[in-house]
């Protein structure tokens, strides 16, 4: 194994580890929200700086590898993919930290999740998609990637249903606006996590095949327009 491949393998391991940390952060944040544990929520937010530092270090190493080895083919795709996934994982961690921060509002607004079975489904689905994504990173498996992309549709569906439920319930209550805002913000973070996991899955497909599957329809339309003009 060349030095570049050795170093790339190490970065990939770090990324995998970072994925597990992010997964833990989301689990902790959701548990804190459910328990109304403000302290635990703040903890998740404070620990986010560790993930931020890890993200910067991984990016620095990738830039060093690009500059020192001028990689090509699979090595080049791997570095580009790591840089993008690194960024997406950090954003997922930010969203988890955001959920942690909002636990305070959950308590202040006296929100009981028992009234919202939809939130549980959404939270469960977000954790599941992140779990699948992190495991896919460890195995760089593109068949799981397609499953992740499909699974995001389910999350979007849960999200839309949940927002309707919140508006129906809280919207009719006097002073229910704050609670509705908090709930929708929490749900929005989970919905975004689904989107970012989709991005990661698309990056894994690029790593494996060299195909960019992102915005496939838009790209097709664009090339049709070019042919037409």
């Amino acid at each position: 194994m060349s030095e570049l491949q050795g170093r790339l393998e190490k970065v990939m391991l770090r990324l995998d580890l970072m994925g597990m940390r992010v997964e833990q952060a989301l689990a902790d944040a959701l548990q804190a929200a459910k328990d109304g544990d403000v302290e635990a929520g703040r903890n998740v937010d404070e620990h986010d700086s560790l993930i931020d530092r890890e993200e910067v270090e991984i990016e620095q190493e990738c830039i060093r590898l690009l500059a020192l080895y001028q990689p090509a083919a699979i090595d080049l795709r791997m570095i580009c993919t790591i840089i993008k996934i690194n960024n997406d994982l950090e954003r997922i961690a930010d969203l988890a930290a955001g959920i942690g921060k909002r636990v305070k509002h959950v308590v202040e607004d006296k929100i009981s999740f028992d009234n919202y079975g939809g939130f549980d489904s959404l939270a469960q689905a977000a954790r599941e998609i992140l779990g699948k994504t992190v495991r896919m990173l460890g195995a760089t498996d593109s068949s799981t990637a397609n499953k992740v992309i499909k699974f995001d549709d389910k999350i979007n569906q849960y999200y839309r249903q949940f927002v309707r439920d919140v508006l129906d319930t809280e919207g009719k209550k006097v002073g229910g606006l704050e609670a509705a805002m908090t709930l929708i913000n929490l749900a929005k973070a989970l919905e975004r996590i689904g989107d970012l996991c989709t991005n990661i899955a698309e990056d894994i497909i690029f790593l494996k095949t060299g195909d960019i599957v992102r915005h496939a329809e838009a790209m097709r339309n664009l090339s049709n327009d070019e042919i037409a003009s």
Binding site: A72, A73, I74, R77, G210
Partner: peptide, 11 residues
């Protein structure tokens, strides 16, 4: 060829 070669030997 340099981003996504089709042959394993090339890669």
């Amino acid at each position: 060829v340099f981003t996504n070669p089709t042959n394993e030997q090339t890669e």
